[in-house]
Computed example of a mutant assay.
Amino acid sequence: MWKNIVSNFLTLAIVLLIAAAAVIAWGKAQYGGAGPSQIAQCVQVARGASLSAVSKQLEEQGAISNAYIFRAGADAEGKSRELKFGSYLVQPEASMSDIVGVITEGGPSTCGTEVIYRIGVRADSVVLRDINPETGAYEERVKYDPAAETKPAPIADAEEQPDARLRVAVAEGVTSWQIVEGLKRAAFLSGEPGEVPDEGTLAPDSYEVSQGEDRQALLDQMAARQATILQAAWDERPFGLPYESPQDALIMASIVEKETGIPEERTEVASVFVNRLEQGMRLQTDPTVIYGVTEGRGVLGRGLRRSELDTRTDWNTYQIDGLPATPIANPGRAAIEAALNPADTDYLFFVADGTGGHAFARTLEEHNANVARWREIEAERAAADTSADG
């Protein structure tokens, strides 16, 4: 009898082990296999959310088939306590393993509602966007000028949503004063910024922020990022450039930034000014004169006057030798790298060519011919505008 009992027990144990192994294998297949959703979905992880709450939410959305398997798999991977706050786009048929990877890796939010405060060279704007899960692309819903208009209700509501993504986007070429003034108008930030940071020391970039984030802390983050970018480019610079310090390179980068909006031209523009410095020529660049007039506090909004070109300031490169006293804007990474890696040319001049870019020249004779062509283009455009008005 005991032999039968032992035999039956062993048989039952084997059956149970086989069944358990089958369940585990099934669970692994469910965890790593294609998910049930046939469309892209936006998965939102709230601050402080538990894995249990997120798994139930995902099951209700139809992104996963079983909340328990999702939790067990995340626990087995050692990721159950690594949830990162944010809104993340999950692709169609994403597996539970894929989704766990997305919501524990973190990084910038990739979907949901976002409010972007854009600090631009000529004007600021606030944009409300929502992602279209089917295309994975953000679609603009509302846009307004914070300096001139009343805030639209949808943007005000979105700024108060705990799961909304908030960003401050700083354009290349804005001044430090413009950045500080823009941050003052960003209602979702808090605290008073201190003094306007030195020109050129803030990195133009997109910064994801939290509701109520301190303005001065954000400025400090921008400064730290710019210092890192500048030092890395300085450390990799070629031998023989006419700069005595990283500050000189930053000044040059700011001039390059203001002189061209064509990415492919940056190194050529930088080569013109480097060649001029090496030959002892004055830089003679209008953006430096403009900075001497405005000192970075807004946009001039008109052409330069002859008297302004003739007035000596610490930035008027028609009147002073070498580099101006300070940067004239906050240059982006590409302009900094161009200033420290100029193209190998013998160009000394450039002028607009009518396409948005510039015509470069080695001699004054070539340059004068390019200027003459540009004057013809200006005259043709003026005549066309007059005809259209008439």
Rank of each mutant, 00 (worst) to 15 (best):
D235V: 07
I290Y: 04
P92N: 02
A63Y: 13
S254Q: 11
A169Y: 01
D346A: 10
I251A: 02
R81G: 04
C111N: 09
A217P: 15
A147V: 12
Q211H: 14
D214Q: 10
A270Q: 03
S206R: 14
L309N: 03
A339H: 01
G35T: 10
A383D: 11
R122E: 15
Q216R: 02
L304N: 09
R167Q: 15
K84L: 04
I39C: 04
E195W: 01
G303E: 13
E160Q: 13
R71F: 10
V269W: 00
M222T: 02
V168H: 08
D310R: 06
L128I: 12
A224D: 06
I290G: 00
T267R: 14
E366S: 01
G106S: 04
Y88F: 15
A46Q: 13
E149D: 10
D205F: 11
A53K: 03
K258S: 06
E376S: 15
A22S: 13
V90E: 14
I320G: 01
D314M: 07
A361H: 04
S65Y: 06
G332N: 06
N132E: 10
G356I: 09
P331S: 06
T110D: 07
A382G: 11
R305Q: 12
F349D: 01
E244D: 12
P246D: 10
R302C: 10
D310G: 00
R266F: 06
D124S: 11
V43Y: 03
L364M: 02
F273Q: 01
S109H: 07
A164M: 01
K184M: 15
A171R: 15
R266P: 01
E195R: 05
D344Q: 13
E268Y: 03
T311H: 09
V142H: 08
P242D: 08
I179M: 12
P162Y: 00
